[in-house]
């Protein structure tokens, strides 16, 4: 479904990604792991279009997307969450989720100015859809709150709701449980498993190994911008190069 083919990205002279290639198969949860600074977020940003890769190709359902502008990608069914929350703080929780329905919303300037009954009807339907998604995440009673006053865990879930509300085909999750406590992590893990069960293709960047090992079908390991291993979770756990990348570095810094 998603093919990453020889992607490279440099910041100034520093390589962040060097010729990384792997695939995400349809309906599978692929985890992307690696030590800090391995290039995981850079790769997610390249797939989502926030950054443009310097070389290589990204294909989604057979179509090249690396030259598409960022705002076209949600229309193809690619949705993402951000590592450091990127909610709209002054909008309400409901409006944040509604923003995730942009591909289905009215785009015409003139029609928006006139607010004809058809437009109002369409907006009402989108509102219902957003409310239903909030209800899924147990946030319906906070729909009218400004996003800025929510707890960290609630904000993370609003981001998930915003990414999922348009019914994407590929979900990019950038550290969905970073900074969450055990109970909140379990809740997100359950949600990921539910989405996986529903057949959604997921690419997950995460440091929490318990989460990675329990929810993913396939694990890809980056270190220093290079792909060092890929395989089933059990294989990765015992792969000497992966252990070296994590533990080796630890023994140096410790």
């Amino acid at each position: 479904m998603l093919e990453i083919d020889g992607i490279s990205k440099h910041f100034g002279g520093l390589p962040a990604l060097e010729e990384v290639s792997f695939r995400c198969r349809e309906g599978m949860t692929t985890a992307l792991i690696g030590p800090n600074g391995a290039g995981k977020s850079t790769l997610i940003n390249c797939i989502a279009g926030t950054l443009n890769p310097d070389a290589g190709a990204i294909r989604f359902t057979g179509r090249r997307i690396d030259d598409l502008p960022c705002h076209r990608r949600p229309y193809l069914g690619i949705a993402r969450t951000f590592q450091n929350l990127a909610l709209f703080p002054r909008l309400t929780v409901l409006e944040n989720v509604l923003a995730g329905l942009t591909p289905e919303a009215e785009q015409s300037f003139v029609k928006s100015l006139l607010r004809l009954p058809a437009t109002r009807h369409r907006e009402r339907l989108l509102r219902l859809k957003a409310m239903a998604m909030l209800d899924n995440f147990g946030l319906a009673d906070k729909a009218r709150w400004p996003a800025s006053v929510l707890s960290y865990g609630d904000k993370k879930r609003v981001e998930m709701a915003r990414a999922l509300v348009a019914g994407p085909r590929l979900l990019l999750l950038d550290e969905p449980v970073a900074g969450l406590n055990g109970a909140e992590t379990a809740r997100i893990a359950m949600e990921i498993r539910r989405l996986h069960g529903a057949g959604l293709t997921i690419l997950l960047v995460e440091h929490d190994m318990d989460l990675v090992m329990t929810v993913s079908d396939h694990v890809v390991v980056l270190d220093g911008g290079r792909l060092i291993a890929a395989g089933a979770p059990q294989e990765i756990r015992t792969n000497p190069r992966v252990i070296e990348a994590y533990l080796g570095r630890m023994s140096v810094t410790a």
């Binding site: 960022c70 951000f82 990127a86 995730g100």
Partner: peptide, 15 residues
């Protein structure tokens, strides 16, 4: 309003 508050997030939602 989304553009005003976070351009990166707005673009990634299709704006």
């Amino acid at each position: 309003a989304a553009v005003a508050q976070n351009e990166t997030a707005a673009a990634s939602l299709g704006i």
